[in-house]
Design a protein around this nucleic acid. Structure first.
Lengths: 191, 191
DNA sequence: TGACCCCGTTGACATTTGTCAATGGAATTT
DNA sequence: AAATTCCATTGACAAATGTCAACGGGGTCA
């Protein structure tokens, strides 16, 4: 149940067996079934989620009711609405399971406890954030001023391993194009 | 010379006078004139920059030679290419001064020293990163699946105070639209 | 001061992408 | 197994945005 988490931590910081045990103790495991919500628009996001197994995605909904996918998360990734988590203001994001998934959750109290008592944890958090920040910046570079086809090509490269786990219309939403356009692009790329 | 930095730190963490002095000691002041580069594509980004005065922006250049603005930075903001800084791989970004500016720089050694010796500094860094991450996520929400006009409206709200300091074609680039389109949108918004 | 260049604007037109509607297949539910 | 829902595809058309070219004002530099 903790393999991915431990892998993630050891990948970033040196941690003693004791510290790892402490971590295990403070995370709350949770199973969530496909199409269930981890977070719903309007609620405050009060926990950080680490994906042990399965996959989720977050999205917001605009005035016209179209969803815009913000992030996908697979095994070994974190997902949550940091804005809502840190400010405790209601979130405008939904987080939904793409597949039956196993999560490890941290609420504020648990997170703060780990920050205070395991110096390595703050460093781990910082590194995760750094990576997440860099990934977002990449995403922006891959969104601005590119044609739909270029965006999709980049997506293919970056997500090649988990392509078949994501329905096409969510990929379209992630890229900011319509499902129809994506379908046509795919068709013309095979030629 | 350190007003903005100290304001930024005190805004985020409790810091003793001693710690602040130590910070002052470890940052390297640098003045940079309009149109000068802080970082050029192909070089490794080996310092983090805090803007005390003035403004800068970062951008990448695509195959066709069009620039895509990634970020603006005004007084009290940080700017750098974190990816390059942390991996020490060559950057694909340029960072250029929009106005004559005063910066406070940290190289790896200085940054690591502060991280190790001032616990508050790691916390400060983490908070800055959190905010930067949230800002980027907002930006993505404001980029995907919006019309050019909606994007520009959002930009106006967010950057109202520094609007007149940024040339229009850079705003267009930031929004991922052409200067012509931006010009037309502005015209039709006044009506 | 004069020459130059940068940049914002405008027009005409091309291209890309979105919208709406219909279809058929695959997956899910009963 | 049948019914239902969801989703990818396709076509015809509309709308948004990009491209190219020209113009002119304002700032900059010699």
């Amino acid at each position: 149940m903790f393999e991915q988490l431990i892998k993630s931590i050891q990948d970033k910081v040196p941690a003693t067996e004791e510290e790892l045990q402490l971590c295990k103790h403070y995370f709350t495991p949770k199973k969530i079934r496909k199409k269930q919500f981890l977070l719903q628009e309007g609620d405050v996001c009060n926990r950080l989620a680490f994906v042990e197994k399965g996959s989720l995605y977050s999205y917001s909904t605009d005035a016209k009711g179209t969803q815009r996918v913000i992030q996908f998360a697979f095994e070994g990734w974190w997902i949550s609405d940091l804005y809502s988590f840190f400010t405790k203001e209601p979130s405008n994001l939904n987080i939904e399971a793409l597949e039956d998934s196993e999560l490890l959750l941290l609420d504020h109290e648990q997170h703060d406890y780990l920050l205070k008592n395991i110096p390595q944890y703050e460093t781990y958090t910082r590194l995760i954030l750094q990576n997440a920040y860099v990934a977002l910046q990449r995403r922006i570079e891959g969104t601005i001023g590119l044609t739909a086809e270029e965006k999709y090509s980049r997506f293919l490269n970056q997500y090649s391993t988990c392509l078949n786990r994501v329905p096409q219309h969510l990929i379209a939403s992630y890229l900011g194009i319509t499902p129809e356009t994506l379908s046509r692009i795919r068709k013309q790329m095979t030629r």
